[in-house]
Simulated scan of single mutants.
Amino acid sequence: MLKSKIGGIGYYVPENIVTNQDLLRVMDTSDEWIQERTGILERRYGKKFEETPATMGARAAEIAIERAGINKEEIDFIIFATLSPDYYFPGCGVLLQRELGITKTEIGALDVRNQCSGFVYGLSVADQFIKTGMYKNILLVGSEMHSMGLDFSTRGRNVTVIFGDGAGAVVLQPTEDENQGILTTHLHSDGTYAEKLALISPGSHGAYHFNKMAIETDFGFPDVEFGEMFVNPTMIENAYTYPVMEGQFVFKMAIQKFPEVIMEALKKTGLTTNDIDLLVPHQANLRISQFVQAKLKLSDDKVWNNIQRYGNTTAASIPIALCEAWEAGKVKAGDLVCLAAFGSGFTWGSALIRW
Score class of each variant (00 low, 15 high):
residue 202 P to Y: 04
residue 284 A to V: 09
residue 273 T to A: 12
residue 282 H to N: 09
residue 185 T to W: 07
residue 299 S to Y: 05
residue 190 D to N: 15
residue 240 Y to K: 07
residue 296 L to T: 11
residue 271 L to Q: 08
residue 176 E to W: 09
residue 180 Q to Y: 10
residue 261 V to S: 13
residue 202 P to W: 00
residue 223 D to H: 11
residue 222 P to H: 05
residue 202 P to D: 01
residue 176 E to S: 14
residue 197 L to P: 03
residue 283 Q to G: 06
residue 241 T to Y: 09
residue 237 E to A: 15
residue 248 Q to H: 12
residue 172 L to V: 08
residue 300 D to I: 00
residue 249 F to T: 13
residue 255 I to F: 01
residue 232 N to S: 09
residue 181 G to A: 07
residue 185 T to G: 07
residue 208 Y to T: 07
residue 269 T to H: 00
residue 177 D to S: 10
residue 280 V to R: 02
residue 268 K to I: 08
residue 168 G to C: 02
residue 218 D to G: 12
residue 277 D to H: 05
residue 297 K to Q: 12
residue 281 P to S: 03
residue 216 E to W: 05
residue 172 L to A: 05
residue 290 Q to A: 03
residue 204 S to E: 11
residue 174 P to F: 01
residue 240 Y to D: 02
residue 207 A to K: 13
residue 283 Q to I: 02
residue 192 T to R: 13
residue 214 A to L: 10
residue 214 A to F: 08
residue 249 F to A: 15
residue 195 E to P: 15
residue 212 K to C: 11
residue 299 S to Q: 11
residue 196 K to Y: 05
residue 195 E to Q: 13
residue 286 L to P: 02
residue 203 G to M: 04
residue 221 F to R: 12
residue 253 M to S: 12
residue 206 G to Y: 07
residue 225 E to Y: 12
residue 291 F to K: 14
residue 273 T to D: 07
residue 194 A to Q: 11
residue 245 M to H: 01
